[in-house]
Design a protein around this nucleic acid. Structure first.
Lengths: 137, 137
DNA sequence: TGTTTGTTACGAAACGTTTCGTAACGACGC
DNA sequence: GCGTCGTTACGAAACGTTTCGTAACAAACA
């Protein structure tokens, strides 16, 4: 029962979720202004999207005042993990290794980021001694 | 002009592409049998999908004999890279680091795979000495 | 030849996503 | 009070995806 009934946000919905994750609870106007920085989008389009997301339970809203305030109902990390699972299954035959190789391969990554990944690998090693610990020696 | 006019396969289309990538050029019947291992899907559904993919240029087909043979027109790696770019933009604010952390974090990964990733990191380091090469010693 | 079997072609329904036009409504300034 | 402005609500169109029923057709076979 670890997997809950997580909604599957569409691409447009993800765009909005990113605004809410990064900027916190926001009005329709604010979200629309943020989206408008990237592309043309009508105000009522953003409004409708948020209303649909509200119906789906993807966002909650505070409608105590006239201009409603929307808030992400999905946690960023959980959602990202779900999306990776989807992509893993849809295009990588379930191999996380291949995905990571692709993500790092044809992409310029800074030394700092590479180091952070190394640290992550080390911490996984320590937490999870799957095979003979001798091998590390 | 590095970016071509790459089609964006849907989820169902990716399912079929995976079959063609792994099994090579295949008939509708074969693809449908493969898909049927995972879920219920009608023969004409698979056929129609392949026909649409053909129109879109996602697959090519040899119709010299009565039963046509379909072949992936997209390379696996290119497509995977494109999908990662999409996901990166759609949900990770463009940070490949965050994506990799997510992919490795809440997932059990074998020591062997971790080592392969380490090798990949090392090879990236060698190819791309952004900072002091001394650090590697 | 006539029947069965497996194939392609085609149309359409069902559904979800995205977009926007229009209307109603409250707040605010004049 | 009245008009303006920003907001929400609602309906619908346009579009893409997915699914499947039906028909046409060719090959194999009895």
């Amino acid at each position: 029962m670890t997997k809950k009934n997580i909604p599957r946000p569409t691409e447009s919905e993800l765009e909005i979720l990113q605004v809410l994750w990064q900027q916190g609870p926001s009005t329709v106007r604010f979200v629309n202004d943020e989206l408008s920085k990237r592309r043309d989008v009508g105000y009522t389009t953003t409004l409708k999207l948020l209303q649909l997301m509200h119906e789906k339970g993807i966002v909650t809203r505070d409608d105590s005042s006239r201009t409603h305030v929307y808030r992400a109902a999905l946690r960023e990390q959980e959602t990202q993990g779900m999306l990776i699972d989807r992509l893993l299954d849809a295009a990588f035959g379930g191999s996380a290794l291949k995905l990571v190789q692709q993500a790092l391969g044809n992409r310029q990554t800074s030394r700092e980021e590479l180091d952070q990944i190394r640290n992550l690998l080390d911490s996984i090693d320590n937490q999870n001694p799957t095979t003979d610990p001798d091998e590390l020696a």
